[in-house]
């Protein structure tokens, strides 16, 4: 699992560095485009995902202590918060697309859609894995799936300031 997590982090890190250096070529364009994003919605989504990470960690604790029912409850909470993240993200997409801001608008929005959609695909995949682990909640399954979920969590923690805060 560590190999998968490290590989995913390497791919995202390469994109983050590319984004920062691309921004250095066109700082005015990136700053003006960033103003069209909602940093509060992004911050809210960060808190939602961090809280779902806590649920995932508590699910591992519960299954390690032999409490299968409590583990399922924590995993369900984790999934609900993951779904809340997806809903907020989809509302953001709808708002941006409704305002005519598409991946073809400019370089900033190409990165915005590429990075956030790639991350969202990981969230959706992670939700599927969490559902499987809720169903077959052996300790090994729960540990593996929650490790993937924490990786999704930490990638967003890095992505949020790059797209929404730093200028």
């Amino acid at each position: 699992m560590w190999v998968l997590i490290l590989s995913e982090m390497l791919v995202f890190s390469a994109f983050f560095i590319l984004f920062a250096w691309q921004r250095a070529q066109e700082p005015a364009l990136f700053n003006a485009s960033q103003q069209l994003l909602d940093p509060v919605a992004g911050g809210l989504n960060t808190m939602v995902l961090l809280t779902s990470g806590l649920g995932a960690a508590l699910a591992v604790q519960a299954i390690a202590a032999g409490n299968s029912r409590r583990c399922r409850q924590w995993l369900t909470l984790t999934m609900v918060l993951g779904l809340v993240f997806c809903v907020i993200k989809i509302i953001e997409y709808a708002d941006k697309l409704g305002a005519g801001l598409t991946p073809e608008t400019n370089t900033f929005f190409s990165y915005y859609y590429l990075l956030t959609a790639f991350h969202l695909a990981h969230v959706v995949f992670g939700l599927g894995l969490l559902a499987l682990a809720t169903w077959h909640n052996s300790r090994e399954n729960v540990e593996t799936v929650t490790a993937f979920w924490h990786m999704v969590d930490l990638i967003w923690v890095m992505l949020y300031p790059l797209l929404y805060l730093l200028r």
Binding site: S13, F16, I17, F19, W21, A24, M158, L166
Partner: peptide, 11 residues
Amino acid sequence: TILLVGLGYWS
């Protein structure tokens, strides 16, 4: 990653 991103913003 943090260092290279930071250098990008600094540059």
